[in-house]
Amino acid sequence: MDGTRTSLDIEEYSDTEVQKNQVLTLEEWQDKWVNGKTAFHQEQGHQLLKKHLDTFLKGKSGLRVFFPLCGKAVEMKWFADRGHSVVGVEISELGIQEFFTEQNLSYSEEPITEIPGTKVFKSSSGNISLYCCSIFDLPRTNIGKFDMIWDRGALVAINPGDRKCYADTMFSLLGKKFQYLLCVLSYDPTKHPGPPFYVPHAEIERLFGKICNIRCLEKVDAFEERHKSWGIDCLFEKLYLLTEK
């Protein structure tokens, strides 16, 4: 054995408090879109979701699917093309516009009456609605409950000090017999300040354990050449399924 860690023996890093005071403002996230600093976007979609999607959907149609901090995630069109209703929230209007443009979807925009100064973008087909606002303002819009949440790049982007508020927001959107698919990253948080932030299993239990059954479905090596600039040499991604207790 050469000592290389595999996707099945990932350790939890003990120094989980080192990132707790890290803060990125909404304006800084918007600047990332304006300046093209969106390496977190996956042009081909998320491979773990693609692998498990049909198993999760079980042939159902007409589900309501929520994408927190959606950006221009191509997976939104995957669900819409399968007959589901997609709702996303994203602070960057540019990111939302790029989604519709890159997916060749016509759309309209209208003000969100409950949140002055914000807009919702709706596909002409009517099954994709993307709200351009802070996720913490979203419950004011009465958008209803969801059958499924796809959380990739959301919890790991939320400032650590806001995670409890974020989890409570997610709980307010969950319908009966929900499936909450959650991706988190595992790396040494003493070497990279984030975002994306390190979210250990214990944190998921703390945030969601009282209401959800929590199961880790898969762990994969997600390290890429660009991650060397973070000062790390190891990065794993974990896919969790959260269901109603």
Rank of each mutant, 00 (worst) to 15 (best):
K32Q: 08
T25I: 05
D221Q: 07
V220W: 14
Y198F: 15
L182C: 09
L69C: 11
G36P: 09
M76P: 01
K77Q: 11
E75M: 09
I10W: 09
Q103V: 09
E244L: 12
G71F: 03
S186T: 14
L241A: 13
G175K: 14
Q30T: 12
I143C: 15
L217D: 01
D168S: 15
V89C: 13
L130R: 01
P68H: 01
V184M: 04
K20T: 14
T6R: 06
H52L: 15
R215K: 05
K20P: 09
P189M: 10
K228G: 09
S108Q: 03
E110K: 15
F79W: 05
D147E: 05
T16G: 13
F121N: 01
L174F: 11
T38M: 06
S124P: 14
L242Y: 02
V156I: 01
V199E: 01
T55D: 10
E27H: 15
E27L: 11
Q22L: 03
L53T: 06
N21C: 13
K77G: 08
L241Q: 10
Q19V: 05
I112Q: 04
A73T: 07
E12L: 05
K145I: 12
E224H: 06
A73L: 13
R140G: 10
I91D: 04
H192L: 07
A80M: 09
L181R: 01
S229V: 07
E237L: 09
C216F: 14
S108M: 09
E205Q: 10
L26T: 06
T25S: 14
E237W: 01
G88K: 01
F197K: 10
M170H: 00
Q30M: 12
V23M: 12
L185S: 12
R226F: 11
L53M: 14
D188C: 10
K51T: 14
K219E: 15
G231H: 14
E203M: 15
T4R: 11
K176W: 07
S129G: 04
D54T: 15
R226S: 11
T6G: 08
E102A: 10
T243R: 10
R82H: 12
K219F: 08
G88E: 00
Q103R: 06
I115R: 04
V86S: 02
E17V: 09
K164F: 07
E109C: 15
L174N: 00
C212A: 15
S125K: 09
F178S: 09
L63K: 11
H227K: 13
A222Y: 15
G144W: 05
K119M: 05
L26G: 06
R140F: 02
I115M: 12
Y166M: 02
W29L: 04
E205L: 14
E203P: 02
D15E: 07
R5C: 14
I211S: 14
A80G: 02
A167E: 00
Q97N: 03
V199D: 00
C212P: 03
I204W: 00
F40N: 06
W150R: 00
C234K: 01
H46R: 05
C216D: 05
L182S: 01
K145T: 11
A167V: 12
S124H: 08
R64T: 11
E224C: 15
M148N: 01
F66M: 13
K219G: 10
F79L: 12
D147V: 01
P111T: 10
P189D: 01
K245Q: 09
T101R: 12
G83Q: 03
G231P: 07
K210Y: 15
E244Q: 14
G36W: 12
R215W: 10
P193A: 15
K245V: 05
Q30H: 09
V89F: 08
K177E: 08
E244V: 05
E11C: 13
K177L: 02
S125L: 12
I115K: 14
W150V: 06
L217A: 06
E110R: 08
S134K: 10
K164G: 12
T141D: 04
Y166P: 00
N213S: 12
Y166I: 01
N159A: 04
T113M: 14
H201C: 05
V86R: 01
Q42E: 15
R163M: 08
S124W: 09
F208N: 00
Y198L: 15
E75W: 04
K72T: 07
K50L: 01
K145Y: 14
M1G: 12
S134V: 00
M148R: 02
D151C: 00
G88N: 07
K58L: 06
S129V: 10
Q42F: 09
Q97S: 12
S125R: 05
C212F: 03
E43K: 08
C234Q: 14
K119L: 02
S106M: 06
G194E: 08
T243F: 13
F236L: 05
L155N: 00
M76L: 04
M76V: 02
I204G: 01
K72G: 07
G194K: 13
F178P: 01
L53H: 07
S124Q: 15
I91F: 04
L207Y: 10
K37C: 11
W29V: 04
G88A: 04
R64W: 01
S129I: 12
T16Y: 07
R215I: 15
Q30N: 05
E17K: 08
S124L: 10
K20D: 06
K37D: 07
K50E: 13
S85L: 10
L24E: 07
P116H: 11
L57T: 05
L155Q: 00
S7V: 07
C70G: 05
A202I: 03
L49G: 03
I204V: 09
Q103C: 07
K245P: 14
F197I: 15
C216E: 13
V156E: 05
G36S: 12
F171G: 12
A154E: 00
V220R: 06
V74I: 15
S92A: 03
C212W: 04
L155W: 04
I149G: 00
H201M: 12
K164P: 14
Y180A: 01
Y131W: 08
E224I: 10
S229K: 00
K245M: 10
K210N: 07
G153R: 12
L173C: 13
N21E: 12
S125T: 15
K191Q: 11
H227W: 05
I158R: 01
I135E: 00
S186P: 04
I10V: 10
S134H: 08
F197W: 05
L94G: 09
K20S: 15
I10R: 11
M148K: 00
G62I: 05
G71E: 04
M170V: 12
N213R: 11
Y198S: 04
I211P: 08
G45P: 11
K77T: 09
I158K: 00
E109T: 10
D54S: 13
K58Y: 10
R163G: 00
H41E: 09
I91T: 06
R152G: 07
D2E: 14
C132F: 02
A157E: 08
Y187T: 05
D2Y: 09
V34C: 05
I211M: 15
E109R: 13
S129H: 15
Q44E: 13
H84W: 05
W230I: 14
D81M: 04
N127C: 10
N21A: 14
G194A: 07
